[in-house]
């Protein structure tokens, strides 16, 4: 299945790029997701707030097919992820970027090799000049051109996240999934990462789901906010609406 086919036939311009219906997932007797319903619209930043262990990361792992749900459906660009063949899933994943909490840089490689990896192995690019140009451009976009020959162990937490984001964005995804992008960072670096997320939306027109419990980050990036608790979505609205919510649990996030 080609990417064009998915785009042209299945997704209208205004329709959601991700549709999740009645999603449920358990690990043994631990019911992590109970009944998740969620839409991500085109060029929208959707922030999912919630305490640790409420199933936020499990939800986005179901979106990219890293986990398979027990019940419900997850559709991305109109295609149900759980029933895709290995090749179709691979084609779909190229269109989805995923920034892991730690950055997940390949620590046996330099920053340059990390950025070249998806170009050589996913896009199958062979032309060295083209690869070099794209690596340099994306590194400048991430504000770290001087880090090109460093190894991940020589980078700070914030730099790792920036490089991780650059490695994801080098494939020019249409959807970005951020798993706690500002966790473990100081407030200044957190703000820089949040602004970088916002600039990704403006410059690359990506639709994003941002999993976080960092309210400052949510305030900067959110077009819409969902609040999760015990495997369910308990509140939805704009940042301002939820900030003034009368619900005690929702309100506790904004204090």
């Amino acid at each position: 299945m080609s990417q064009e086919k998915i785009t042209d036939e299945k997704v209208s311009e205004s329709g959601p790029v991700i549709e999740i219906r009645s999603l449920a997932k358990s690990f043994g007797s631990n019911e992590v997701l109970k009944n998740i319903n969620l839409d991500l619209n085109k060029e929208e930043n959707l922030v999912v707030l919630g305490k640790s262990g409420t199933g936020k990361s499990v939800t986005i792992k179901c979106i990219v097919g890293l986990l398979t749900q027990d019940k419900g459906t997850v559709k991305v660009f109109g295609e149900e992820v759980a029933v895709l063949s290995e090749d179709d899933l691979k084609a779909l994943r190229v269109r989805i970027g995923f920034l892991f909490q730690s950055g997940a840089l390949y620590d046996s490689m330099t920053v340059r090799e990390n950025l070249e990896f998806p170009l050589r192995r996913v896009l199958m690019l062979k032309d060295k000049a083209e690869i070099d140009t794209r690596v340099t451009e994306i590194l400048e976009g991430a504000g770290l051109p001087e880090a090109i020959d460093k190894t991940p162990s020589e980078l700070s937490g914030g730099m790792r996240k920036r490089i991780g984001l650059a490695r994801t964005m080098i494939l020019k995804p249409e959807i970005m999934l951020y798993d706690e992008p500002t966790t473990g960072l100081d407030p200044i670096t957190s703000k820089e990462i949040s602004e970088l997320i916002q600039s990704m939306k403006k410059n690359y027109h990506v639709s994003s789901i941002i999993i976080t419990h960092d309210i400052a980050c949510a305030k900067i990036v959110a077009d819409r906010v969902l609040v999760m608790a015990k495997g369910e979505i308990v509140a939805e609205g704009s940042y301002d609406e939820l900030e003034h919510s009368k619900d005690e649990f929702v309100n506790s996030f904004f204090k």
């Binding site: 892991f100 997940a104 390949y106």
Partner: peptide
């Protein structure tokens, strides 16, 4: 140990979700 630590630090998953083939690599 190498693959185990790559798994723990989500490097294998990062490879998988990027569309690369971690088994092959």
């Amino acid at each position: 140990a190498e693959l185990g630590s790559m798994k723990v630090t989500e490097q294998v998953e990062a490879m998988e979700v990027s569309g690369a083939n971690p088994i092959q690599y």
